[in-house]
Design a protein around this nucleic acid. Sequence first.
DNA 1: CTTGTTATTGCCATTATGTGCAGTTACTAT
DNA 2: ATAGTAACTGCACATAATGGCAATAACAAG
Lengths: 152, 152
Amino acid sequence: MACEEAFFKKLRERGFRLTPQREMVLSVLHQIGDFATAEQIHDKVHALSSSVDISTVYRTLDLFEDFRMVSCVERGDGQRVYELLGMHGPHLHLVCSGCGSVMGAELDLARPLAVCLREDYGFEVDVNRLHIPGFCHECQPVSGEAATVEKR
Amino acid sequence: MACEEAFFKKLRERGFRLTPQREMVLSVLHQIGDFATAEQIHDKVHALSSSVDISTVYRTLDLFEDFRMVSCVERGDGQRVYELLGMHGPHLHLVCSGCGSVMGAELDLARPLAVCLREDYGFEVDVNRLHIPGFCHECQPVSGEAATVEKR
DNA sequence: CTTGTTATTGCCATTATGTGCAGTTACTAT
DNA sequence: ATAGTAACTGCACATAATGGCAATAACAAG
Ligand SMILES: [Mn+2]
Ligand SMILES: [Mn+2]
Ligand SMILES: [Zn+2]
Ligand SMILES: [Zn+2]
């Protein structure tokens, strides 16, 4: 595919190498299309080549993130999910603290806030990495009683 | 202190118990004043009572977070830092991807975004938990070349 | 004060992720 | 094609954080 070729070229331009492991992770991300955990990705890569280690998957996802090809979201449970950008394009991530679902949102909505923070604090917001905690439509907290603490 | 008493009362009102461990963690957080890792907190608690386990510290910090007394920030390195609210009051957290520093910012700046997301997506933003990635004044990325990837 | 209930703790196992290192392999230049 | 360089990998291990569980202790009631 064309988009992959462009990525491979950029890789080499910057001194990185194109390895079968990286090709496989990228291919698997394409195949999945949706969010996936490192382990889910590793499972599919493992099916293609059983010697690939999960640490390589982590390192590859990290690299893809640096290249802005993949976005990573910390889900409510202690696991991260990774998503291939480029098809949906960059977007905000609304992460529901109730059900753990992740919703994409128009990135431009965060622009005014970014401008404020640059002007008032000299802080350059990385809007691509912004993920916003809260509650989705199904999980609205009991109105009025905002700070209810659940017994364990 | 008065603010601690108020918290202890709220604890019991909701069926939680006031234990020496919880008192110690709260006292240590006061003493530290700044951000601290779970391990730093545990060290100081351990000095007061050497049998307290770090898992208890984690659970206590979790509880304090539920009570909105403590705010937790995922720092760049794989560690979280905890901060006692109430003195500074709630605020946004600007987390620098360069140096790992955390800056507090006026919470109201995020209000317009929250309104947009509620109206457009039915998503109720939890502004207290919002932390914003980017680069502080000292760590401004090379302008123009946004997506520079470092060799490892 | 004594007793009962059950939230909480300490301990230990487990999970998700990161790292050091020596052997391997992709790329470059001859 | 061959050889040199250094990026990359697999493996083993380290680390931060979480979860199960039986023993403990905080609180309420008598
Ligand atoms: Mn997304
Ligand atoms: Mn703060
Ligand atoms: Zn939800
Ligand atoms: Zn910085």
